[in-house]
Design a protein around this nucleic acid. Structure first.
Length: 308
DNA sequence: CGTCTTTGACCAGCGC
DNA sequence: GCGCTGGTCAAAGACG
């Protein structure tokens, strides 16, 4: 389900006039108009009207594409929900959870937040804790060459253990929330066995403090990974700026009543997800210096080429 | 010197 | 009961 990853990047290299070569043509038309002896104002007006119509048509076409994309996304998400519910039913019949755990399934669909239910990893081992502890899972795509098991989520974590598990060659790191001494939240981070570029973070419990960490605001932005990483783990080297954009949501959002714990997090309202996505895209873009630089270059380039 | 990470040891749960 | 496995502890070392 690679298509489930939400790509928030923009291709700024697209020149709106490139496919029609309107700009050079318009320039040429203007020169020709001088030779034709027609009114340059009328020529310019006609060109502008034509361009306006073209832009409107393109806008309409893009809107239709976006609508179709959203519809496809909705359909895919529904299919994923059905798959997850089926998996929960089948997995609950198995005795040992470790045999049925598959991180890749946790990444399916909306990979940012997969709030696990009692069918999750501790359900068979610690059924009592499962009732009280909120368990959620997040998948973050990282640079495959980056060996650090750091997931920047805005909180401060203290590593208290590392273990190599049976079904995954990469070690699993254990973290406790160090922001508040009484905070019971624990986090396990391990690379996906199938895709080493993906870090799977499993959170247990709920934070009993507010999200004061400065990195909390910047954690959603890959561009600020350096500062966030410094806050999260001052001693570790800053994560490469080539960090792929990963959607990261508030992982500690309450999953609701106990009766609802059987449902995966993907049950969140569709408009809410879209709103979060839009906010994250905007935040990610506006905080990325590369984006602003590229945008400025693109705009200035357009001005130069178009010779307004 | 204080804080944090590392890592081997220990403990508990589970299956056989 | 034994072995396997995951989770946690705590001493030692690194780092600023």
């Amino acid at each position: 389900m690679e298509s489930a990853w939400v790509n928030t990047t923009l291709d700024l290299s697209i020149n709106p006039f490139s496919h029609t070569n309107k700009a050079p043509k318009r320039e040429a038309d203007g020169k020709m108009a001088e030779f034709d002896g027609k009114s340059p104002v009328k020529q310019e007006t006609g060109i502008l009207v034509e361009e306006l119509n073209r832009v409107s048509a393109e806008n309409k076409r893009l809107t239709e594409m976006l609508t179709a994309l959203c519809e496809h996304y909705t359909i895919l998400q529904k299919q994923y929900k059905e798959l997850v519910s089926k998996n929960i039913e089948t997995e609950s019949s198995k005795k040992r959870k470790a045999d049925c755990e598959d991180y890749s399934t946790a990444m399916i669909g909306f990979t940012a937040n997969a709030d696990s239910s009692c069918s999750d990893e501790n359900s068979f081992r610690k059924p009592k804790e499962c009732i009280h502890a909120k368990i959620s899972r997040a998948c973050v795509r990282t640079d495959p060459s980056d060996n650090s098991l750091i997931v920047r989520d805005g909180y401060q974590w203290r590593k208290y253990g590392q273990k190599v598990t049976r079904d995954n060659p990469s070690p699993r790191a254990y973290f406790k929330c160090s922001f508040a001494p009484t905070c019971p939240v624990k986090k396990k981070v391990q690379r996906s066995a199938e895709d080493p570029s993906i870090l799977v973070a499993t959170y247990e419990g709920e934070h009993n403090h507010t999200h004061h960490s400065p990195a909390a605001l910047s954690s959603l932005s890959p561009a600020n990974s350096g500062a966030a990483a410094a806050n999260n783990n001052p001693r570790s080297a800053p994560v490469s700026s080539s960090f792929a954009p990963a959607v990261t949501l508030d992982l500690m959002k309450p999953a609701g009543s106990d009766g609802e714990t059987k449902k995966p997090t993907q049950q969140v309202d569709q408009p809410a997800i879209q709103q979060i996505l839009v906010q994250q895209m905007a935040a990610s873009l506006t905080r990325d210096p590369n984006f602003t630089a590229t945008l400025a270059a693109s705009i200035s380039g357009n001005f130069v080429h178009r010779k307004w």
